[in-house]
Nucleic acid binder design. Structure first.
Lengths: 206, 206
DNA sequence: GTTAGTCTTAGCACCAGGTACTAAGTGCCG
DNA sequence: CGGCACTTAGTACCTGGTGCTAAGACTAAC
């Protein structure tokens, strides 16, 4: 592989190879292209491609960022309005990872996740968990669409808040229904001992 | 910070510190805990914590894996049984990214995602979309728990399948309810022109 | 053919962030 | 006081690099 290439050809392929597998070392690349390690290093320098350890570190940092973003925001989508215990609005742009590759239609659970995150942020409590949901999915959402969701508290009984949820793409209703949130469930750390949670029955779900 | 600790205290905090920031080097840790680099190395060895470069590499590899998994699978969780148009079972182990960091309780939308993915896989059609859901969340699920979900077609009218959905951790009911799936929606590519989809009304939702 | 220029290579010193091991403290406990 | 757990310093070695210089190979122009 990679014999009889001139410098420009090799550099183009080099770029590609590193993109494909960022974990590859200069030594492996040298073997792959039948040149010396020194040549690979010069090529990398010309192409401004960082060394393997740096490439790996950047990958890992990207991951770190996304994990942190998820932890920090607690919201899928970007929160644009928030009035605690009243209503909240977020927008969410559908990316490649959210769609069925064949049809470019967003998977339903991402639409649910937006609503669910929004409802979690809306409840003014240290901890808020989803207790129930009733949702209708009216229209498919496509790659690149921006979905605007609004969740609104419409009733509250004890620790349970009933919220009305809707989401739109432009003026087209995408999803609508209700989601019930439970604030500060007792004894959350006593795994599956949390009686207060389990005993919520239909009566509590107004 | 970190003065006057004995070995066990220091090792516990060390574990925590590295988990929080996997990019930290032994030198930084040594400074943080006011001990020598050698001590940190011995501690890491005892705790079987790999070196910084290895930690970073694993993070980066995990990222690659997870991106691929999401693109490849189409299913959140691992499909363990599938009888098309009849029932399907999957398991899903709750990881760090799925939980609220404070409480280590899984976010509701991941539980939904498991059910939704399973229902999508279950319907024997080129394309299947979520049309409606009614779910109760009975118990919180924690980090490291393995959730087993079953979705079962209980009725079918035209292109709509009504499915019963449940998920458990061991024998504890976590989530239960119904999800309606729409098979082969017409004109899916005509964005928001898909009349057949929008005109589904309550009548169709048996 | 010679010469100039480009491209490639080898060799060397140096670096961070380690591993693996030995030897020498240090502090506390009975 | 001895003995043991713990900590530290020091050494040699490792990988996957950087940065530099000097030398060789090839080509193209004169």
């Amino acid at each position: 592989m990679g014999f009889g290439l001139n410098r420009l050809e090799r550099q183009a392929l080099l770029h590609q190879a590193i993109e494909e597998n960022p974990f590859v070392t200069d030594e492996q690349l040298a073997a792959q292209f039948s040149v010396s390690v020194a040549t690979i290093r010069l090529d990398r320098q010309m192409l401004a491609i960082p060394e393997a350890r740096e490439r790996i570190r950047r990958l890992a940092e990207g991951l770190q960022d996304s994990v942190r973003a998820l932890e920090a925001d607690e919201v899928v989508g970007t929160l644009s309005e928030l009035s605690l215990n009243h209503f909240a609005v977020s927008t969410f742009t559908v990316e490649r990872i959210h769609v069925f590759s064949r049809t470019e239609v967003a998977r339903g659970h991402f639409l649910f996740a937006q609503i669910n995150s929004l409802a979690t942020a809306l409840i003014d409590a240290k901890i808020a968990l989803t207790a129930r949901s009733e949702l209708r999915f009216y229209r498919p959402v496509f790659l690149q669409d921006t979905v605007t969701a609004k969740v609104e508290v419409i009733a509250q009984r004890g620790r349970v808040s009933k919220c009305k949820a809707v989401s739109y793409v432009h003026d087209n209703l995408v999803l609508g229904g209700f989601i019930w949130m439970l604030a500060n469930p007792l004894a959350i750390t006593e795994r599956f001992q949390s009686a207060a949670w389990v005993t919520l029955d239909e009566e509590d779900m107004f």
